[in-house]
């Protein structure tokens, strides 16, 4: 049910006739784990996101299988053992810019923002607040943010054997280049 509601919201946000919507289909979300044992980096360059500048609503959709790791075995473990991507293929974030009035979308420049919303990973939803920046440029908006997540908060179990290979806190980096949604 939640998924249907989310999908409808996402589609509605996308298709509503409103010149205030911005989107990307090639957004970047990566995560980085640093331990004494090894460094792990996963990159996803196929993030779909819609930003509504009139309401501050922001929605992300991420396909777990689109995360790329340098080592093939790591990518397999990530999908099969940790994220169970066959069962839970997508991760989503649905939130809002809490200080929307601090951004002047008519003036090029960089603005600090705070985003708050629901992050769903591995079928577990948690409320997340993250600091970021919106950069208004000619013809688009760039959004950047860095925040941390704890895998256990999303019921991602990491076996004891490799627990020391993966950091307790994962650093997540978000980099989006939004362009206006054309009304066809």
């Amino acid at each position: 049910m939640k998924r249907i509601v989310f999908f409808l919201t996402f589609t509605f946000l996308f298709f509503s006739v409103n010149a205030q919507k911005f989107m990307t289909r090639n957004g970047y979300i990566g995560f980085y784990s640093h331990t004494a044992m090894e460094d792990i980096k996963g990159d996803n360059n196929q993030v779909a996101s819609v930003l509504d500048i009139s309401t501050g609503e922001i929605v992300f959709q991420v396909l777990i299988k689109s995360f790329h790791f340098e080592k093939a075995l790591m990518e397999e473990h990530f999908n099969e053992n940790y994220m169970e991507s066959e069962k839970f293929p997508k991760s989503t974030f649905k939130g809002k810019i809490t200080n929307l009035s601090a951004v002047d979308f008519s003036k090029n420049g960089k603005y600090d923002v705070v985003v708050e919303g629901d992050l769903n990973i591995h079928d577990v939803t948690n409320k997340v607040t993250a600091k970021g920046s919106l950069e208004v440029i000619t013809g688009g908006i760039n959004a950047n943010s860095k925040f941390n997540i704890v895998p256990e908060d999303y019921k991602i179990t990491i076996p004891g054997v490799v627990r020391d290979n993966i950091a307790k806190n994962l650093e997540v980096t978000v980099a989006m280049k939004y362009t206006p949604v054309e009304n066809k």
Binding site: F14, R25, Q46, A48, Q61, L63, K65, S66, H68, K90
Partner: peptide, 12 residues
């Protein structure tokens, strides 16, 4: 093939 969001997504 990784799947589908708004487009069909192919990787590697």
């Amino acid at each position: 093939c990784s799947g589908f969001l708004m487009d069909v997504l192919l990787n590697n």
